[in-house]
Amino acid sequence: MNIFRGIADFSHLAAIIILLHKIWKSRSCAGISGKSQILFAIVFTTRYLDLLTSFISLYNTSMKVIYISCSYATVYLIYMKFRATYDGNHDSFRVEFLVVPVGGLAVLINHDFALLEILWTFSIYLESVAILPQLFMISKTGEAETITTHYLFCLGLYRALYLFNWIWRFYFEGFFDMIAIVAGLVQTVLYCDFFYLYVTKVLKGKKLSLPA
């Protein structure tokens, strides 16, 4: 594993834990898109079905299990435990506009027309756009809590670092996966606008708020 991949995985883990911790400590999921969190739970579930069919390494298995468990815990906190604080009116992104085209694309463009492969491809495509309900919610309310922006930054950083990991692997291992690379590029581009706001506002101690 190269350094980019290593930092990326822990950045991803940090993002997931920051979000869980924020919700648990504040006893509130205000400002968090439950829809994005459901999409991430679907992403992890469909991608990590290979936990049942193959063993790669203890690291690989542990991280997959942690990601899946934390994503379900987050969904549980939002829709069950702290449901009263969930801001459903502002979480109005139509997820079917993501899931249906992404499902169709996964059936059309994949490595192998087999159930597990299609689900893996579906998860890669879906992950690239799963943050959109969250970004839509922030654009609708015009603001985000600082802790939420830290979560988003870690989540965006993770996929950006994977791009470096893929460049590394191409040069040193001759390995590349076009599906993951294209989806990863799309995913990273979606965060660019946010990265700009994070650096120019949040890192300078200001709250992230958008002009009306």
Binding site: I56, Y67, Y162, R169, D177, A180
Partner: peptide, 10 residues
């Protein structure tokens, strides 16, 4: 073999 490399990533 490539599939294993792919599935190694998270």
């Amino acid at each position: 073999e490539d599939e294993d490399k792919r599935k190694d990533e998270l």
